[in-house]
Simulated assay, not measured.
Amino acid sequence: MKNNKIALKVKGKTYKVTTNAKGKATFNLKKLTKKGKFTATIKFSGNKYYKAISKKVKITVK
């Protein structure tokens, strides 16, 4: 699934990316510098084949 929009919300900041030709999305979280565990929400906006979905994920910064 290429060229789909994905959004990641962590600590009040939203990061948006588009999937590449292989369907992978890479987020650059430069603002997340404190060590610890964070809960984030990732959203897929949906398209004509798949419904929109939202999941909670855990991020660990070492």
Rank of each mutant, 00 (worst) to 15 (best):
K43D: 13
A52D: 07
F44Q: 02
G12D: 07
F44S: 06
S45F: 09
A25C: 12
I53S: 13
K11S: 14
K22T: 15
F27V: 11
S45L: 07
V17M: 07
T33H: 04
L32V: 06
L32E: 03
T26D: 13
V10E: 11
G36P: 15
V61D: 10
I59A: 04
K62H: 13
K55P: 03
K13T: 10
N4S: 14
K43V: 08
N47W: 02
S54V: 04
G46W: 07
K30F: 04
K5R: 11
S45V: 02
K62M: 03
K24F: 12
K62F: 10
F38C: 07
T18G: 01
T14I: 10
G23C: 10
F27A: 09
K43E: 13
T39K: 15
A40M: 05
Y15F: 12
G46L: 00
Y49D: 14
K11F: 01
T41S: 12
K43C: 00
A52V: 00
K48D: 15
K13H: 09
V17K: 07
T60S: 14
V57A: 12
K16G: 00
S54W: 00
K30E: 14
V61F: 12
N47E: 02
M1C: 09
T41G: 04
K51W: 03
G46R: 03
V10H: 08
K5W: 00
G46I: 01
K9C: 03
G46P: 15
T18Q: 12
L8W: 02
I42P: 09
V17C: 10
I6W: 02
K13R: 05
K5A: 08
M1T: 10
S54K: 12
V17W: 07
T33I: 13
K62C: 01
F44E: 01
N3V: 03
N20T: 03
T18L: 09
K16Y: 08
Y49G: 08
K5M: 09
G36W: 04
A21T: 11
K51E: 11
V57T: 14
T14L: 00
K24R: 11
T19H: 05
T14Q: 07
V17Q: 12
A52I: 00
Y49E: 12
K48F: 05
A25M: 14
I53F: 02
A52R: 04
M1N: 09
K55H: 13
A52H: 05
K5T: 15
T19W: 01
L32G: 03
K56C: 03
K31F: 13
A7W: 00
I42S: 07
K48H: 04
N20I: 03
N3L: 06
K5P: 05
T39I: 09
K31G: 11
A7T: 13
F38D: 13
G46M: 01
